[in-house]
Design a protein around this nucleic acid. Structure first.
Lengths: 338, 338
DNA sequence: TTGTAGGCGTTATCAG
DNA sequence: CTGATAACGCCTACAA
């Protein structure tokens, strides 16, 4: 059974390849009867449309590239899922790359995507410091939309949220509970713009409420459970431990919870704790975690819509959406007394 | 700066396109000096190799398709991560699809991958009942390797583990702790082969130890936290509740933990609990969960290696690897007394 | 070691 | 509405 292509298909029916092609891509241009027959025979012969060749011929592909720091973070996966859902509807394919927060890998994958002539890209958490790189790609004719970060550039499209504001608000919540010594366990802000915004939000909330920022209460940790645990242990071991802790990701927070247990410290009785992200597990730990909800799915969805729009129009334009986050109050905080 | 292609590049240097092509793909066939110069100019002009065109021309692509039920399950992501790591080394791209356990979507994506002329596919948890589909694709000339399941077919390559055996062993562990009424909270085994194997392992362990299987202790639930919680509540509400529960995924188990708390039931004092998967959170819940470790990363890694090998050789061959799982004992089980 | 020519499967363009 | 033809960017014989 030698692979059938359009040509073979056309021959079988006694028709030109062009007509067959049209039957698939512009059905309205071909006589219903003819089309019917074509589709019919296509089914019988199990003809498979060669998308690669089509893309190549049309000089615009139906593949979009998605860059994610790591699919292991469940919220990124959530965005990714949304991207795929939307994308499948339109019969686009998604090629994916994990950067692992490493900018060399980032650069490599970007090149790879360009080489594949993707129709567009969605860049996750591609924040501050990389504007130039993204701008160049856009200039080269490949539309990009950045998600997970509100950017300062006015030429790059994004669908993000305000990390600064969100961190500010949850810190403020802790302050409203009368806490004054508030610890922070946070990802590597020195190398990640997005994370840095959270740090800034935390600091601003403190100073705005007349609390001096004490950097000995800030621990910079990699983003995983163990590090969260260690961070908490360190904070709790301080001469004057904090009465509340803001872990700048739920993963860190859940690790912190374990750390508190290990130190014989009850949450929220002895120390209050908040997270950030509202991953699913946050509601199921003990105690359920107060945190910030991030509209991950929504971001992915909107990003695809935006990207596809730009691709279709064919004109470079920029759209920017800053979505809202919510404070989700559960049971991991108590009012500070003394 | 009109895009430079190979032709332009060649012209600039006063050389034919073929030589340029060779400089990239078969460096040894071109004079070092010439190659040097080509690479040099390529860099200067920021030439980007058109992988899409190359693939098309060569009639075999450097893209592999990966199908996953959902990237949200962290262990699938782990395999996915491994796949990408390995794949990047070889300069292959990964196109991805989430099936959401839906076989219509599965079929659609499979077609999409075929249409893109992928060089090969890695199918995750594409178990029992779909052998025919996979075999057809292999016959059509696209190598496939299935991961996450040990298959019975001897023509399909896989890198999996034995769900039956793993479930058997953890059930047996519970039995060794003198439990006799052992509940099971499990995913939709009626539609998922992989899950069904776990059910069978559980049943076999029971009967092999002279315990009658009581289907009222088996609850079939979708795979998420809430369902796990509900499952536990239901089991604990029984006239004669189980003294131990096997949740056939850690997600379910963590939900179950919350369910137990809600019923005022302590783990492991009042009821023992085990999970399956050993996701990262398992070690950080309260109490830390006894579970089965799945070599997710390793599976992804080995799958790529296997796939690439088959692709390179160009001859259809089948490799099958069944990896080991481990029982990870933590603090969620106690011996049954009375 | 390098150049020439033809081809990969589809689509766009231009006639008919 | 349908057909013929060139073209997309690169690769692979084959020839030099």
């Amino acid at each position: 059974m030698g692979k059938v292509g359009m040509k073979q298909l056309a021959e079988m029916i006694g028709m030109s390849a062009s007509t067959v092609s049209r039957a698939f891509r512009s059905p309205h241009l071909v006589h219903p009867k003819t089309r019917e027959r074509i589709l019919q025979v296509a089914r019988e012969t199990e003809y498979i449309y060669d998308a690669a060749a089509g893309d190549f011929s049309r000089k615009i592909s139906t593949v979009i590239g998605v860059l994610v720091p790591t699919t292991k973070r469940s919220l990124f996966s959530e965005s990714l899922l949304a991207i795929q859902d939307k994308t499948q509807e339109k019969n686009f394919s998604v090629i994916i790359g994990n950067t692992k927060y490493d900018s060399a890998v980032e650069a490599h994958l970007l090149k790879q995507f360009q080489g594949r002539r993707v129709a567009g890209m969605i860049l996750t958490g591609f924040g501050l410091g990389h504007e130039k790189l993204v701008e160049d790609i856009i200039k080269s004719g490949i539309p990009c939309v950045v998600i997970w970060e509100k950017l300062d550039s006015d030429v790059i499209s994004y669908v993000g949220f305000d990390n600064y504001k969100a961190a500010y608000s949850i810190t403020k919540y802790l302050i409203s509970l009368r806490h004054r010594r508030i610890g922070l366990i946070i990802g590597p802000y020195s190398k990640m713009g997005r994370t840095r915004k959270r740090l800034e939000g935390y600091r601003a909330a403190l100073t705005d409420h007349g609390i001096a920022v004490d950097m000995s209460l800030v621990v910079e940790k990699d983003l995983d459970l163990l590090e969260g645990k260690q961070g908490m242990i360190r904070l709790l071991g301080l001469e004057q431990p904090p009465t509340a802790v803001f872990a700048a990701s739920d993963t860190l927070a859940i690790g912190a919870l374990a750390g508190a247990r290990e130190m014989g410290c009850r949450v929220p009785d002895d120390v209050s704790l908040v997270g950030f992200d509202n991953i699913e597990f946050a509601a199921y730990c003990e105690p359920p975690l107060t945190t910030i909800r991030i509209p991950a799915y929504q971001m992915g969805q909107l990003a695809v819509r935006t990207l596809l729009e730009i691709i279709e129009k064919g004109t470079p334009e920029t759209h920017q959406y800053c979505l809202e986050t919510d404070l989700i109050i559960r049971d991991s905080c108590a009012e500070f007394k003394s």
